[in-house]
Design a protein around this nucleic acid. Structure first.
Lengths: 343, 343
DNA sequence: TCTCGGGGTTGACACGTTTTAATCGATGAC
DNA sequence: GTCATCGATTAAAACGTGTCAACCCCGAGA
């Protein structure tokens, strides 16, 4: 059940079988045919661990995302898988579930597996957990995360711009008080989108106090509902508009508000982020900020594989940054059309 | 950068280091401490391929689902990951994207990786592609798929019952004509749910011609929209109710119908399947059939690991079957409450 | 006929870990 | 004082593949 048995059956040496598998052009047609037949007859499957052991690295890349249940990340994963499989790489997909500890544990597993490279959407701000890999010479590309470090690649979308775009539109539409609903601010996505929102606030001549901030433990719909309940129950009047750090939160917020009899967008406007597929089909179709998600995955993978193939030499690290795009739907569309910035 | 360097640094033999890693109780406290320190100092990470090579199999299980973009499968994956990591196994997650060819290719990769076992949601009816693994003695558990074969485990939900439940309710609510929207019938989920719907039809005293069938290439929202367009444009009047083989299809159908000005459920009732989280937040909250998704993943993983640990001996294969549950929301709720079966 | 060259093939070693049998040292019983 | 015992440690042999230098054979050129 190994290369040796195949060799015996085909009447050649193990080395030749290996050549058939890895450099078929170096072996004569007749021999190759014989070997291939033996492979089929015996149902031989190459032992990946032996190859990996010998080569020092596998032909597998790791992809670690923040949350597998978020369609944003599965879209991204699709981009990664498509490119990887085009180039003959397999993908090990893992989720940190927004937990630093799980990220660390999973990265360790990837290191043990001797993956060729890793795509990481880090929980922390600098992806320091990935040092286990970088120290071993394993290329790491940050995904959906810009980096100041010049010694690594990154692919991201400008979340500050996105936050400004989103909050700016809400303010343009006449909102004078906002709420910002987000996960913990260690998540760069939350921090940057918040920063953008604050800029928009300032540009509209409003102070910080015009924006209430609600922080929840996770960026999913359940947490969104929790945030809405908090807004509903703390005695203060609801804000004119709610900007959520992602669509899952926004959908949860919306659901809870509607259930409480709040009218969207008449009473409160809602804006999400990511423009996941479900947002357009929501009870009140959700305004959101669209990102080139699938492309993000593709480009990041291309950068990673380029770095892998170059063996460190000749590869120039790149920090790619995309610009997001506003998608306005009913959840933020004021009854009488946009009011402009005069309100 | 291996066990040898650690051994040298700690002044012991490689065998002892291995013992520290795998059977710490067998090594004296002082020695163990010294080795552990050396491990930290050198930043040693065990080479998984070498272990796997030596052991003949890795401590990794493979999970192949039909569609990563479907929340049903990510819920399921969560169950799998939770159990696997509790037991010290890592999970390699892959998606066949409902393609038999991709399933085959990915299973081959898993075989090469010498995974310890595989959880498979098969595209075809019998999971024959997994024979590459079974022949090598790798346990395979079918997930969301019952099996007649007594020589393997499976965990599933009764989709025939679910289909009957769903269609039955639509008929009870007064529908006299149905449409069934589904993916290709090689997908067992589609075939079974259809069978259940036909049973309900018969039970209501209606013939097959009362149910139009729309088959689309994939079970996602885009295909759902395509199905709705077909129903809208083929000249015939719309059916009283539409039963979709999963929620993604149903959300797509609903979206397209609403856009065309069709009232849901007054003009047409809609029923989905899976009860994914988004269904409750849809434009018209979606009636659906709920499955114990997360539990499905947990139980399947427990069965798989049991089989792995038993090394084939003493393990009795089980075919577990859950019963689904109807969740009625607005999309199928007639204005005046259920009309009963009087038509 | 001898040499040279080159494509095709081979043999042996290395990759890093686990495991088993053997070794070593110390302790306690006789 | 000797021997058996037992716990802790070691040395060496696998696991299956890839690689690289060596080798073989055959045909071409001298």
């Amino acid at each position: 059940m190994g290369i040796k048995q195949v060799a015996a059956r085909a009447g050649v040496s193990p080395g030749t079988v290996s050549n058939v598998l890895n450099r078929p052009e170096r072996v004569a047609d007749a021999t190759r045919a014989r070997v291939e037949q033996a492979i089929v007859e015996l149902g031989f499957v190459r032992n990946g661990s032996a190859s990996t052991l010998r080569a020092g690295h596998s032909s597998t890349i790791g992809l670690m995302v923040l949350d597998l249940a978020n369609p944003f990340f599965t879209d991204l994963a699709r981009g990664v898988e498509d490119v990887a499989s085009e180039r003959g790489y397999a993908v090990i997909l893992a989720s940190s579930a927004e937990s630093d500890e799980r990220e660390q544990r999973n990265l360790r597993v990837l290191a043990e597996q001797r993956v060729r490279g890793v795509l990481l959407t880090p929980v922390g701000d600098d992806g320091a957990n990935a040092d286990v890999l970088r120290d071993r010479g394993v290329p790491v590309v940050l995904l959906d995360h810009p980096t100041p470090r010049a010694n690594q690649c990154s692919v991201a979308v400008d979340d500050v711009a996105g936050g400004e775009l989103a909050a700016g539109r809400l303010l343009d539409d006449g909102a004078r008080t906002l709420a910002f609903v987000a996960g913990p601010s260690v998540l760069r996505q939350c921090a940057d989108r918040r920063k953008g929102a604050l800029r928009a606030l300032k540009a509209a001549g409003l102070g910080r106090e015009a924006m209430r901030e609600v922080t929840v433990p996770a960026m999913n719909a359940r947490s969104g509902q929790e945030a809405a309940l908090r807004l509903l129950s703390d005695g203060r009047p609801l804000p004119d508009a709610i900007f959520c750090a992602n669509d899952l939160l926004a959908l949860g917020v919306q659901r809870e508000l509607l259930q409480a009899g709040v009218k969207v967008p008449t009473d409160v406007a809602i804006m999400g982020y990511d423009d996941i597929e479900f947002s357009a089909a929501a009870a009140v179709p959700l305004s959101s900020v669209r990102q080139p998600t699938y492309q993000l995955g593709r480009i990041a993978t291309e950068l990673l594989l380029e770095e892998c193939d170059d063996e460190g030499a000749g590869h120039a690290h790149q920090q790619v940054m995309f610009q997001p795009e506003l998608v306005v739907r009913e959840s933020s569309r004021p009854a009488g059309g946009p009011k402009g910035g005069q309100g």
